[in-house]
Design a protein around this nucleic acid. Structure first.
Length: 854
RNA sequence: GCGGGUAUGGCGGAAUUGGUAGACGCGCUGGAUUUAGGUUCCAGUGAUGAAAGUCGUGGGGGUUCAAGUCCCUUUACCCGCACCA
């Protein structure tokens, strides 16, 4: 009996070997094909969690596999290190955000290293490091010059807990994405990136991202939210001005019965100055925003301004103007015309305020004389009626005709709207990249000259006062204007942390360039990222911003491509059972002991425990398992194998003790199968192999072919199943057949090589034990011998009336007649046919014979 | 409300283009080795039936020689967006 596999010693040994040999250092080499494998960079919270283990295992399998396939692989790692949690932690622990952050990075880096990831740590970056953010400031200034950045006063989403504004993408169900606080509307001066310049391009290019999940592309498409329609003007009665509305249904203009404007529309604000009740109504709308109350109650509220407007097609036709809570100032023109018959919201509104409901689109099969709308608007297509110019036209034709008509009459024009709005990047926080701008009373917003970069964060700050620590700082913001020299003040807003992560993938490629954000030669070689792996929660925010950034970097000459990530894989989350004690308090898995009957008790007190649902691991529910503990108990290879087994990578995985045990058992079995082979390994294959030995060689080579295909397609769970099948097959060798010792060696070596991307440590060790001097990290991927993939016999099924009655083993490509004859000769088949007349026989070569009888 | 997805043994999940449903693993049952447990090894494991067989991929219907796979319909759950005019 040999010793148990000592994973701790082996894993340390090989991690040191890789480090000493710089096995994963990526060097630009234009003579070799490159492969850029990237996993999303983590936020340095202090500890890695199982989600990281899964993400980085998947990315590492790709990196190691592609390396073996001969690619020059870039596989870097870094830290998304700015952000509010560091400020909060620093305040609570009376330390500095930088101290907290760099301590966390140190810890997490050690944990990541224990996973045996094939990362080029020489390219490591931290976004909070001035060596990183100084380049970001340069990019900001270049984007500013390229007219892709601007400052404007705008209604911003204010998070009252984090004391900062948020981008639209960061408001989820009316709450801040991080704090969960109800977001308020505030009018503030903010910096914006002009992502909307690329609305159409970002939308169109989704079609080229064929290695992205459809789901993510669809989410981005919906987020960009293109809609085609028209602007139409309604002249205000008794004034020389118009209310401009946006509509996608200009064909329903003859059904208009009111115009509704947002509480923040210019006209509403003007009227409110003379009408206290209206002012109160508008204030109410802003307090509740257009979010929570409105969503929960769905109540349409309006305020009749007393003002009327003329219909664009008929000056004599007056409709009232309401201020309405459901009209968004940010979308379209902040004004709509209401057509109650064909829009549910407008109908609800009209019924509440007693406005006319006039149908102008006739559904198929309805009689124009009798068709009426009750409580349900007709929003579908139909024939226009009651509509003068458009009567009789189908909806699509009527829309086109209406746009033409409003343009002819000079009362509007066809247009395209996008839901996507410019990206607000200002954050009123300390721990972020300072926006390199100086505000001067005479010169305005002046860019910090390149020679004065970087604008560094001050280190002496106070975090215990509400508001922006940069703004509180006694001296930092007071500087002289670079243009006129007069006293001025720095911009105290810092960048949204999504800016940091929008270009880090490019920076990795030129990590040692101290003078420029990136070098063009590196961009041209390494970019784009060939395979990006991360969580689906970044489907919109991070990925859309990065797509914009790459285009902005192209516009400013840094890069020659549009799309940063040609391949994207979004992995599922890691779940675990959750537990509660009698008092309803959450318990950690290690606090719970399972009884034989499946019930649970507290491990130390023995009191009953309620076993809850299987849910995504989260600290708040305590259903977490610490990867560090697992790696210490079972080793990184076992943890990696568990992550790859069973569940398809895109689906959620349930972490279970039994599953880890299973993975560990296989690792141990692999160890034994090489170190204590049942029959002696031989190095040379004899010229003639026995039947069984030959069949096994075929299995070996088929496994190579199929597993390679599985890895290419991200079917890692199937890849694991295939190596286990190969293990099972090799176990059947018992030395009874000629050449088995040599076949077993070939099988074990293949097994070890195929498993190397998944289990990098044990496979290196076993490879060395098998007598190889060159480590697997330098080795090539096994190739299947085509001659051994050719099957000589096939098993075909025989059906009678579609029911399986027998299986036959026949030579491959046997002709149909032979297959038919063999099928009819089978006893089981004869019994099933029971002398009935044969109507038809279908023969699918190498697959099936189906005999149809009556 | 709109959009998308999923549904297969006790469990996680396999199954090119319609062509032997349940690979592989977990769990479970029985046995062997062993020292007490674990480990390891062997056998079994969709349901039903003595067997032949019959039934079986959320439910119902259809197309086909043949359906987990295609079509219609329905239910449940998950995800995204949510007054976007």
């Amino acid at each position: 009996m040999s010793e148990r596999y000592n994973f701790a010693a082996t894993e340390t040994k090989w991690q040191e070997f890789w480090e000493q040999n710089q096995s994963f250092k990526a060097v630009t080499d234009t003579s070799r094909p490159k492969y850029y494998a990237l996993s999303m960079l983590p936020y340095p919270s202090g500890r890695i969690h199982m989600g990281h283990v899964r993400n980085y295992t998947l990315g590492d399998v790709v990196a190691r596999y592609k390396r073996a396939m001969g690619f020059n692989v870039l596989h870097p790692m870094g830290w998304d290190a700015f952000g509010l949690p560091a400020e909060n932690a620093a305040r609570d622990r009376k330390t500095h955000p930088a101290t907290w952050t760099y301590d966390n990075i140190k810890n997490m880096k050690a944990e990541l290293k224990s996973m045996g990831l094939s990362l080029d740590w020489d390219r490591e970056l931290a976004t909070c490091d001035v060596t990183y953010y100084k380049h970001q400031q340069k990019l900001f200034l270049d984007f500013l010059k390229a007219n892709l950045v601007y400052r404007k006063e705008a209604w911003a989403n204010w998070d009252p807990v984090d004391n900062t504004v948020l981008a639209n993408e960061q408001v989820i169900d009316g709450r801040g994405w991080r704090s969960g606080a109800l977001v308020e509307k505030r009018l503030l001066s903010q910096w914006f990136f002009k992502i909307t310049d690329y609305s159409e391009e970002l939308l169109q290019a989704l079609g080229t991202l064929d290695r992205w999940p459809d789901k993510v592309r669809l989410m981005q498409e919906n987020w960009i939210g293109k809609s085609e329609g028209a602007y139409v003007n309604f002249p205000v009665t008794g004034r020389d001005e118009k209310v401009e509305v946006f509509t996608t249904r200009p064909d329903t203009l003859f059904g208009a019965s009111f115009v509704a404007i947002s509480a923040n529309h210019a006209l509403a604000k003007e009227l409110a100055t003379k009408d206290a009740k209206l002012a109160e109504f508008c204030a109410e709308c802003n307090r509740t925003g257009t979010s929570i109350v409105a969503i929960e109650q769905g109540e349409k509220l309006g305020f009749d301004t007393g003002v009327t407007v003329s219909h664009p097609f008929d000056p004599a036709w007056k409709v009232p103007v309401y201020v309405a809570n459901f009209v968004l100032v940010e979308y379209g023109t902040g004004a709509i015309f209401g057509c109650p018959a064909h829009d549910q919201r407008d109908l609800d509104f009209a019924r509440k305020y007693g406005l006319p409901v006039k149908p102008v689109v006739l559904p198929e099969g309805e009689d124009p004389a009798t068709f009426t709308v009750g409580d349900v608007a007709y929003t579908g297509e139909g024939k226009a009626f009651n509509s003068k110019y458009f009567d009789g036209l189908g909806t699509d034709a009527a829309i086109k005709a209406a746009i033409k008509k409003v343009e002819e009459l000079g009362v509007g024009k066809g247009t395209v709207q996008y839901r996507l709005r410019d990206w607000c990047i200002s954050r009123q926080r300390y721990w972020g990249c300072p926006i390199p701008i100086i505000h001067c009373e005479t010169c305005g917003a002046v860019p910090v000259p390149d020679k004065d970069l970087p604008v560094e964060l001050p280190t002496d700050i106070t975090l215990d006062k509400p508001g922006n620590p940069l703004d509180h700082h006694p001296t930092w913001k007071h500087v002289n204007c670079p243009t006129c020299g007069k006293p001025a003040r720095r911009e105290t807003d810092t960048c949204d942390t999504f800016v940091d992560s929008s270009w880090y993938y490019a920076r990795y490629c030129s990590a040692d360039n101290a003078d420029e954000p990136v070098s063009r030669a590196d961009m041209d070689y390494w970019m784009p990222v060939d395979q990006y792996v991360g969580g689906v929660e970044h489907a919109i925010l991070h990925l859309l911003y990065s797509r914009f950034f790459t285009r902005a970097m192209k516009a400013t000459g840094y890069i020659g491509i549009d799309e940063p990530f040609t391949g994207l894989f979004t992995q599922g989350m890691v779940c675990h059972e959750s537990y509660k004690d009698e008092d309803g308090q959450w318990l950690y898995p290690e606090e719970v002991k399972r009884n034989a009957d499946g019930s649970g008790v507290h491990a130390t007190t023995g009191r009953p425990v309620t076993i809850g649902r299987i849910e995504v691991m989260s600290k708040s529910k305590k259903n977490v398992v610490d990867p560090g503990q697992i790696i210490r108990a079972y080793g990184a290879d076992t943890a990696r194998l568990f992550m790859l087994s069973d569940s398809p990578p895109e689906r959620d995985i349930e972490w279970s003790e039994a599953g880890v045990e299973g993975a560990w058992r296989y690792v141990s079995r692999l160890w034994r199968s090489v170190t204590e082979p049942k029959i002696a390994l031989e190095t040379t294959l004899p010229a003639a192999l026995g039947e069984k030995a030959l069949a096994l060689r075929q299995t070996i080579h088929r496994t190579i072919a199929e597993l390679t295909n599985d890895i290419e397609r991200f079917h890692f769970n199937r890849a694991v199943a295939r190596v286990r099948e190969l293990s099972n097959a090799l176990d059947t060798l018992d030395g009874s057949d000629a050449g088995e010792g040599a076949v077993l060696r070939e099988g074990l070596e293949t097994l070890v090589r195929l498993l190397n991307p998944m289990l990098p440590h044990i496979t290196e060790e076993l490879w060395a034990q098998l007598g190889h001097k060159t480590p697997l990290v330098k080795g090539a991927w096994p190739k299947a011998d085509p001659a051994l993939l050719v099957e000589t016999t096939v098993t075909i099924a025989v059906q009678v009336n579609g029911k399986i009655r027998a299986t036959l083993t026949l030579p491959k490509d046997a002709d149909a007649k032979a297959a038919e004859a063999a099928a009819l000769a089978d006893d089981g088949v004869k019994r099933a046919m029971a002398g009935k007349a044969t109507k038809k026989i279908i023969v699918v070569p190498n697959k099936i014979v189906n005999i149809v009888v009556v």
